[in-house]
Design a protein around this nucleic acid. Sequence first.
DNA 1: CGATACCTTGATCGATCTCAATGTCGGTGG
DNA 2: CCACCGACATTGAGATCGATCAAGGTATCG
Lengths: 245, 245
Amino acid sequence: MARPDSLTPLPGACSACAVRPFALFRAIPAARVGEVARLRTGVRLTRAGEAVRDSVFTLYAGWMFSWAPTADGRRQILDFHLPGDLVERQGDLPEVEALTDASFCVLSRERMCSFMEQEPGLALSYAEGLARDRARLRERLTSLGRRDAVSRLAHLLLELHGRLMARGGADPRGAALPLKQAHLADALGLSVEHANRALATLRKEGLASLQKGRLDILNRRGLEEVAGWMAPPPEALSGATASAS
Amino acid sequence: MARPDSLTPLPGACSACAVRPFALFRAIPAARVGEVARLRTGVRLTRAGEAVRDSVFTLYAGWMFSWAPTADGRRQILDFHLPGDLVERQGDLPEVEALTDASFCVLSRERMCSFMEQEPGLALSYAEGLARDRARLRERLTSLGRRDAVSRLAHLLLELHGRLMARGGADPRGAALPLKQAHLADALGLSVEHANRALATLRKEGLASLQKGRLDILNRRGLEEVAGWMAPPPEALSGATASAS
DNA sequence: CGATACCTTGATCGATCTCAATGTCGGTGG
DNA sequence: CCACCGACATTGAGATCGATCAAGGTATCG
């Protein structure tokens, strides 16, 4: 049931890392990848549902999500993390939890900083990732502020599908999504019951269906329509450096 | 009525720039600030309510905001920009509009990028700004997802007050806020009428009042209480470089 | 003085929440 | 094999928060 690769041991050498083309270190020329290994303080495995306490790491396999608690004890999911993503926590926030079994490379914040000071390409790659995060958060903010439940849901499904496509983790008809309805609800600012009804609406309209961890896109055009989707723009300031999208 | 300094001519030399301590270029040692001037392609003035089309600039005086249109023609305000902020647009989005009369320094994206490649401190400073934006967006996302109207409003007022305090633009009792209720509504995902009622609630409870462009914080503790406020955490990955907060 | 922009208030409507069941399915122990 | 259990999904009914619609009110400015 867990993704086959989530607990696979990581390659020892970063040069062989399967997610590097999508990760922070894509910016480092192949010849110098050896130095990257020295930023790493360890490799970890974690089980679905566990909290992750490391403060800087690259997710290698599996999914995670970041969330913030509210005063009344509920939570808001801030972002989902896919293989290759750099995840960062400062102090206690945000909380990061493994959505599936997962493995990741812990990095030394200190060594990263000094490496970035010698290697502007790395700093720019880091900035590029932040700019992407920002763009995604802006899109979500627009959803929560101005779109109704069905539209929000459609939007999130398209976003996740797009991110998976970009790393070869999906085909155009759908993808594996290990989300429970509770995660959708917490990401979209809805109650679980209403998230369920929104999902049912998409299914009844023949637009998309999410069942048993599998997303099926039944009518892409229609789904984009209800989402009020606009194609994501190219890249941020660091666009000059950008490569894969 | 407009802020006195919004249309004041900018100093010719970046070394004399009043907002540099809060801006992207705070990272550049004083001795090298001369080179910064070469990144600048021009200085602009704009009137309140006008759209700004330049794609990278540092706001010098006045306020702006970024927003995204929705499919049904409404809008979501994504962020407010204060003097010293770096503002960036890619392609058409987000839209940026001047909230007050404003003046700003337009930068060459191309020259910025190449300068960052020689000057990692600048790239890190850029990243620091992005990380701050992200933190703010996360907080807003939590508001829109999980807090009610009054709490959202209290949160936004505290956030803006904090940002102004950090640059010496406010005292602990309040600050000048050139926002109309329509801006609050569009930032908080509310109707104007409901934003008005939320504001009235804060006033009636003796927590805060916003009138004629002036925010008064009447009961900070109480305001933080209804906001579900948690003190903002220190800095991001680039924290090693961080200076003022 | 009138016009315009902004704020305020009230009444009604509707989307979403809450609460309370019920259903489904995969596992687990007897 | 079956009974039960826990986690998750689904459905229904009623309560709420905030949207919408419709007037006014107020202030500023030409």
